[in-house]
Amino acid sequence: MQRFLLLLFLALPVAAVAQGWEPYVNARFGFTMEIPPGFSLVQEAGNGDGRTYAKGEAKLSVWANHLATGPFEEEVAGRRETYLQEGWDLSYDRQTAGWASLSGTLVDSILYHRIIALCEDAAASFVLEYPQSMKAQMSPLVGRLVKSLRPAEGCTSAQGAAPPAQ
């Protein structure tokens, strides 16, 4: 497993590290993602599910979970319903068989949630939440975050399930 993670880390684009984007590899669920410059680690889940980062008032949560409620579509539907119950106005809601993106506002906050299917009945997500006042600073990061959230090599059932943002 350690050899696999080393190879995975070495396969990450050198340009990402050079520009200040830091790789995050989740060995437990088998996915990778790049963390933008300036985001500091705030908390790591004790069970290896994921991490939370912050930059000022912006919060970036990255995690994975087993699909306890059923297939991927039901997982996304549950997330969507939770956001609506919390009062989020979801202005962007796009879903395919292997990925979904939800984005919206609540009072003075903006939320972007990307979720992708992984192997072994699991899904990986990131949620970027920030105040409206940081929109100009945070919005340009979303596309790269979306493109960088990927299943690990060898996860053939999920490969290609999470294409880059369109």
Results as ranks from 00 to 15, higher is better:
Gln137Asp: 15
Ile110Glu: 14
Arg144His: 14
Val127His: 03
Glu153Asn: 10
Tyr112His: 08
Pro140Asn: 11
Gln132Asn: 15
Ile116Phe: 02
Arg114Phe: 02
Ser133Ala: 15
Arg144Ser: 07
Ala124Tyr: 06
Pro140Trp: 13
Met134Val: 04
Ile116Pro: 00
Tyr112Val: 07
Met134Asn: 06
His113Tyr: 04
Gln132Arg: 15
Tyr130Leu: 05
Gly143Met: 07
His113Gln: 07
Gly154Ala: 08
Ala117Phe: 03
Gln137Gly: 15
Leu141Met: 14
Pro151Met: 13
Ala123Thr: 11
Met138Ala: 04
Ile115Ser: 01
Glu129Gln: 13
Gln132Val: 15
Ser148Met: 02
Pro131Asn: 09
Gln137Phe: 08
Val146Glu: 05
Ala158Leu: 11
Ser139Trp: 08
Phe126Lys: 00
Gln137Trp: 11
Gln137Ser: 13
Ser133Pro: 04
Glu120Leu: 13
Thr156Cys: 02
Ile110Trp: 09
Arg114Asn: 08
Arg114Ser: 05
Ala158Cys: 12
Cys119Asp: 15
Glu120Thr: 12
Glu153Leu: 12
Thr156Arg: 04
His113Thr: 05
Ser133Glu: 04
Lys135Cys: 13
Leu141Ile: 10
Tyr130Gln: 03
Ser125Lys: 01
Tyr130Arg: 01
Leu118Pro: 11
Arg144Glu: 00
Ala152Tyr: 00
Ala117Lys: 03
Met138Leu: 12
Leu141Val: 08
Leu111Ile: 14
Leu128Asp: 04
Ala123Glu: 10
Ala117Met: 12
Asp121Phe: 13
Leu141Lys: 02
Glu153His: 12
Leu128Pro: 04
Leu128Glu: 04
Ile110Val: 13
Val127Ala: 11
Thr156Trp: 08
Gln159Ser: 04
Glu153Tyr: 14
Cys119Ala: 12
Lys147Asn: 07
Ala123Arg: 08
